[in-house]
Design a protein around this nucleic acid. Structure first.
Lengths: 143, 143
DNA sequence: CATAAAATGTAGCTTTTGCTACAATAAAGG
DNA sequence: CCTTTATTGTAGCAAAAGCTACATTTTATG
């Protein structure tokens, strides 16, 4: 045994990781658009991510195939039950990361940006620590 | 004016972002392998990221074209001056993120994994706050 | 209701990153 | 030195995410 050469596990960010991140970003965006505009149109989604409607459409089609979204031709995009669950947990995680960064002293504009990037890479353990930090500061505001 | 519809800026993680992340990960890995094994062979790099040597080779070729690496057929991979600079700043940022997570109470194994993912998404402002948190804790270990 | 505008869909291309299979070169062992 | 093994390179394919250009459908407007 003893293969000191290989500690590759933590570096294995593959294409699968990327498409999972995309899935999470999209269901979260769909949920937000439905919440704020009562429906999610493809053009809005494309604008949201700053991509062409064609790109957005293809990703939506993939996520529909994966059972996260429900689509019909020329109709607004809806979330399946699975999609709603995923969106909810992403939103919660996102909000914890965002409020953690603000608790740490970051301005909210930068917190918006950074939390977008960071949220996908936070393990449950780390998220728990973020949450505790926010809670502790809430109890003890003059820290 | 007033276009309340569009706040797309912070969501624009494009393919360019991804390939920049890849570049950073690779130069960092090349630097680490040179530091620990005195040279960086393609097979080692491929093992490091858990990808085939073909994939590693193509990425190395791209980074060579971009001026970050220097390669010759069947020879070990080297960093250019630009590559060394990038590797150094990535390593520093990475180490700040890692020690921040540990200062927050995370175990070092999880800190290894999470810091890998998080490092690319931390703005200078956030990095500064991370650094300050670590420093403050170092002065005040019983916090 | 007919036509203009907006939204969505389709065709077809690119780049990046993943792979297997096979070829060529370099290094090691007999 | 010659053969085996390890390393590197090349050919060719796939999926994901980006695009423009054009077709179609829905919605809005005169």
């Amino acid at each position: 045994m003893a293969k000191p050469t290989s500690k590759p596990t933590r570096h294995q960010r593959t294409r699968k990781d990327h498409s999972t991140e995309t899935a999470e970003d999209y269901v979260e965006a769909v949920a937000e658009l439905i919440a704020t505009k009562s429906q999610c149109r493809l053009v809005e989604l494309a604008k949201y991510f700053g991509v062409s409607h064609v790109t957005a459409n293809r990703i939506v089609a993939r996520l529909a195939k994966e059972g996260l979204l429900h689509t019909e031709p020329y109709r607004p995009i809806e979330l399946t039950a699975t999609g709603r669950r995923l969106a909810k947990s992403c939103q919660e995680r996102h909000e914890i990361v965002r409020s953690f960064l603000i608790a740490l002293g970051l301005d909210s504009a930068t917190a918006d940006i950074d939390s977008e990037g960071i949220e996908h890479h936070v393990s449950p353990k780390t998220l728990e620590l973020f949450q505790r930090f926010v809670d502790r500061l809430a109890d003890n505001p003059d820290y």
